[in-house]
């Protein structure tokens, strides 16, 4: 096993309170963050993901135990030293209006520059490299106020890269972004971890992207932490246990969350392919149960000369519909 970039020794995280018991969110954590790997931190809201990240970044004191960066206690390091070992990206992207993309990324060089923060030739090289690494070269001359959230977040990641730290911590960097941007940023992080040897820890609610990109997952539950390869955690039920609630569960076979089927009227759908999938989703969305054999109503997909058509049979009365909405309306009219 390689030397970890970061590890924790019997770490307890939480908040101390005056004259009351401390609020302890997790204890006895012995975690290892390896160089060149992307680790996803997942868990339900309020379980302490941000607290863990803040504690690992030494922005908050642990209740007990230690965070060790390359073997050194993070709490004992000076801010300047710490900033050369560990960089941070948060959910919110601040945008001081008049700053350009280049200037924002150049802030990442602050721990390396002189007392005025002047950029040397090698600092400029690092900034330009970081801009190119996140494919944001064209944003260099643009003013932040004119950029989108996704573009700004990319620049914040470039800034963390320009800081040239062995460890990068990201707290829900994709929370406010649309799906294509989320996919792009997670793939970017994977590529950066593998190509540049950085140890990257990213907390996210996007289980799908975490399963597809992370080398390892840290699943946080109340008082416990499950660590493993994403696939192992999917197979041994770790993900199921972490995210299970009354209405949502993790479907091991599809690798996605499924809304637990409500106990509505049973309906049988006959057909195949994409159309059948979406018809079943429409029924599930409206609270109907799927019955593999026969139900109160039968729906079948037919093809006639003009294209596909839904045949709905309720108590032996047949109606034909062109759209999913038509079928749903007919079901409602029939009082089902």
């Amino acid at each position: 096993m390689s030397v970890p970039a970061l590890h924790t020794r019997d770490l307890s995280i939480g908040y101390p309170r005056r004259r009351k018991d401390d609020i302890c969110l997790a204890k006895a954590l012995n975690l290892r963050l390896e160089p060149g790997s992307l680790v996803g931190l997942l868990g339900p809201n309020g379980v302490g993901k941000s607290t863990l990240l803040r504690t690992l970044a030494a922005m908050q004191a642990p209740l007990a135990g230690q965070v060790l960066l390359d073997g050194e206690d993070a709490r004992r390091m000076r801010p300047g030293e710490l900033a050369k070992a560990l960089s941070l990206v948060l959910t919110n992207t601040p945008h001081p209006g008049l700053m350009t993309g280049f200037e924002l990324v150049a802030l990442g060089r602050l721990p390396h520059s002189d007392w005025l923060g002047r950029l040397s030739e090698s600092d400029r090289g690092a900034v330009n490299w970081a801009l190119d690494a996140v494919n944001a070269g064209e944003l260099a001359c643009q003013v932040l106020a004119e950029l989108s959230d996704g573009q700004r977040q990319k620049l914040m990641i470039a800034r963390a890269l320009a800081q040239e730290t062995a460890i990068m911590l990201l707290d829900e960097p994709t929370a406010f972004l649309d799906l294509p941007r989320r996919v792009e940023i997670m793939r970017l992080l994977k590529r950066l971890a593998h190509q540049t040897g950085r140890a990257i820890l990213v907390s996210t609610h996007d289980l799908d992207q975490a399963l597809r990109n992370c080398d390892q997952l840290w699943l946080m539950r109340e008082g416990a932490m499950l660590v493993g390869a994403p696939e192992d955690l999917a197979l041994d039920g770790g993900i199921t246990q972490t995210f299970h609630t009354d209405s949502v569960s993790f479907d091991q076979s599809s690798g996605a969350f499924a809304v637990e089927t409500p106990a509505g009227a049973a309906i049988h759908v006959k057909g195949s392919g994409t159309r059948e999938t979406w018809m079943r989703r429409a029924l599930e969305r409206n609270g109907y149960r799927h019955d593999p054999v026969a139900g109160v109503a039968d729906i079948s997909l037919r093809h006639n000369g003009q294209g596909p058509e839904w045949h709905l049979t309720i108590e032996e009365r047949l109606s034909r519909h062109r759209s999913v909405a038509g079928v749903l309306a007919a079901l409602k009219d029939a009082g089902i």
């Binding site: 160089p35 050369k84 690092a126 190119d132 690494a133 730290t165 190509q195 040897g197």
Partner: peptide, 14 residues
């Protein structure tokens, strides 16, 4: 970086 053992490599399109 300043810390000897944690060499961070820049690679990529240049």
């Amino acid at each position: 970086t300043a810390r000897a053992s944690s060499a961070v490599v820049r690679t990529g399109p240049a």
